[in-house]
Design a protein around this nucleic acid. Sequence first.
DNA 1: ACAAAAGTGTTCCTAATACACCCATGA
DNA 2: TCATGGGTGTATTAGGAACACTTTTGT
Lengths: 245, 245
Amino acid sequence: MTLADEMEFLRKYDASQFERPSVTADIVVFTIMDNDLKTLLIKRGQPPFAGYWALPGGFVKMDETIERAAGRELEEETGVEPSEVYLEQLYTFGDPKRDPRTRVITVAYFALVVSSKIQPFVTGREGIKEVRWFSVHNLPDNIAFDHRKIIDYSLRRLKNKLEYTAVGLELLPSAFTLTDLQNLYEAILNEKLDKRNFRKKVLSMGILQPTRRYKKGVHRPALLYMFKRAKSTSTFKSVKFEREP
Amino acid sequence: MTLADEMEFLRKYDASQFERPSVTADIVVFTIMDNDLKTLLIKRGQPPFAGYWALPGGFVKMDETIERAAGRELEEETGVEPSEVYLEQLYTFGDPKRDPRTRVITVAYFALVVSSKIQPFVTGREGIKEVRWFSVHNLPDNIAFDHRKIIDYSLRRLKNKLEYTAVGLELLPSAFTLTDLQNLYEAILNEKLDKRNFRKKVLSMGILQPTRRYKKGVHRPALLYMFKRAKSTSTFKSVKFEREP
DNA sequence: ACAAAAGTGTTCCTAATACACCCATGA
DNA sequence: TCATGGGTGTATTAGGAACACTTTTGT
């Protein structure tokens, strides 16, 4: 049945029979803090799931794209401008019983933000809320709705995506050391990587540009790199780097 | 803003301000016919886009999952039971202007069906419609809405997926020759493959089981294979074979 | 016997892995 | 001078790509 047929059909019946679902955008925000991959959750004040932790999100307005809704909600919770965020649509969850009150279809996104750009205490229009960054490897048990499933899936997607894209760079400041980058990979994949092989691999991608600056610390200074934009002769097929769709 | 906050907020205002979008499921159905990858389009009778070709699809009912809606629409158009179809969520398209009449968010799916299971003349509840299978490499110019973009994206996804899953087997009958399988890959990827390398690769996956039967034709008979279910020691990481999410 | 599709191995090259030591600096 | 993290190379292995001939059958 095409859309047009359906519209035709619709006009012949009582509108209430064609009740529409609510549509929300929920965002799994990832950032690296303390060498660990964290995600943002908000404590719910009202039932259902009062006292449980939920993903940031909200209704999609009639005149905005879904991605824009996600970006807007994200900015409200983290203070990070949408232009400074990597935002990718994850999956649409639409089980009729996922919200006990009414039919809510949610389009889930995952976002990667640089932790230094987060403004620590941002308040929504309902005032201060309890908001926390949780290690993805140590999430609370009381997560609202199907949000645990959404987080798990986004983590899986992020891990996969690390293997064939440079998406990890979205979590680092503009200049970083190779050790920073390796720590990031290790935090996400939750496993140790070999230093020489890791360097060989990321350098062979040709997407990193060495600067002439060094990060000084207690010990030997480390060369800082930057992300090189517009690299054409990658070892990867170009399609893999595309942002969906 | 959390869902709960938003609900709270909602109660204070006129409901019309919180108009809800319509949600549809559209399906890109793929099948192999005449050694070519085809997709199903339906000619629209009414404006907008009267006379244009559109994807099968329709509204998601309040009490059904989105996937079920997609399966239902698919069955109406092809006569193939949902249990006999590979159905995977593709992406959700929500540009406010994608349908000129009203806000319609569509959750796009792609489906793989075995052509022999298709019932050639199925009619929807509006009567006989003009329905055609188009080669994906030769689509009409007049495609309605953003459906061309949806088809292109699903083709890209299918191509990618062929590389790391056994999803192509969903397009073949239960017993098939290696040449059948290779023709299928060539039709989808739109390129010729080396016979020896192809056989080496698919056999090394360990997902094919030789039968003792042969497909007879004009020339030398070809050994028939079947898909071997529940293969554990694959060369691929298990996550890759998972159906999302 | 011949036309046509089925079936089969080897070489080469690239990429992934495993693995251990010297270097530069600040304290 | 020493503790610490920064930085480097080589050998092995596995998988992908290029490439041509023999086998089996029906006509």
